[in-house]
């Protein structure tokens, strides 16, 4: 059991952090929501009701979509774009999808390679891009989820103020939707760019997110 935990410590710790932060968000979110309800002469809702509310759903999903967009973009951008000296980039000579030999596919697959790396055709094509396909799908689903939950919220607000409701497509055209979306995107893009640039000159000993401490600044893509 202890060995199992150690072998999965990275995913276990982040899973625990995620759950703890989500619980914290839900507790604070319910209180904020109820405060607002009372200020507007409405009634508060229970914690369990809040967990399945559009208010909580849109707050969760607007952050999810931007995180998955960030990684999806980073995964695909680093195939083609480089930053000289960065740990997050591959060397200038490797730009593109790389050779079958280097990618260990088809006849170059090894004994223990995944079976989808061995086959030819659509199966391999899909497997070669499976990470971006899944990350982009999660992004799109979360963004759609954000739009429908925030739309419900928006209309509840409209009704409360005696204004008319809008359709889902109408909501996509409102500044509310784009402000919620872009405020998350801007921070993700800045963070990705920062990682690409900071890892040229800064180091974290022992981290695969950094070059080795003694690696020269102009050395590109060599995790320590």
């Amino acid at each position: 059991m202890r060995l199992w935990a150690r072998h999965n410590s990275l995913s276990l710790v982040f899973l625990a952090l995620f759950i703890a932060a989500l619980i914290g968000q839900s507790i604070a979110g319910q209180r904020a929501f109820n405060e607002q309800q009372l200020q507007h002469g409405g009634e508060g809702i229970s914690y369990t009701r809040y967990l399945v509310s559009s208010h909580f759903g849109s707050a969760v999903l607007e952050n999810w979509q931007s995180e998955y967009l960030q990684f999806a973009l980073f995964i695909v951008a680093t195939v083609w774009l480089i930053q000289r000296g960065s740990n997050e980039s591959k060397p200038p000579g490797d730009v593109g999808r790389e050779s079958d030999h280097k990618q260990l596919v088809g006849p170059h697959a090894q004994r223990n390679s995944p079976s989808w790396a061995r086959v030819e055709g659509l199966g391999r094509r899909l497997y070669e891009n499976s990470l971006i396909i899944v990350m982009a799908t999660i992004f799109l689903a979360a963004w759609f989820g954000q739009s429908v939950t925030a739309w419900t919220e928006y209309n509840a607000d409209q009704r409360e103020h005696g204004a008319s409701s809008v359709s889902w497509l109408g909501y996509l055209d409102r500044p509310d939707f784009w402000e919620k979306t872009l405020q998350n995107w801007q921070s993700e893009f800045l963070a990705v760019g920062t990682m690409a640039v900071f890892t040229i000159y800064l180091r974290q000993r022992g981290s695969p997110e950094s070059k080795p401490v003694g690696a020269p600044h102009d050395q590109t893509g060599t995790s320590g």
Binding site: N8, V52, S58, L61, A141, T152
Partner: peptide, 30 residues
């Protein structure tokens, strides 16, 4: 291999459950 599969499955199930739940919540008011 089993342990890695377990972690993979936990993350997939968690993400899928969250997405399905809140898309359903959003669409429930249609």
């Amino acid at each position: 291999v089993t342990q890695m599969r377990t972690m993979f499955a936990v993350y997939v199930v968690l993400i899928a459950a969250g997405l399905v739940l809140y898309i359903t919540v959003g669409l429930a008011h249609l």
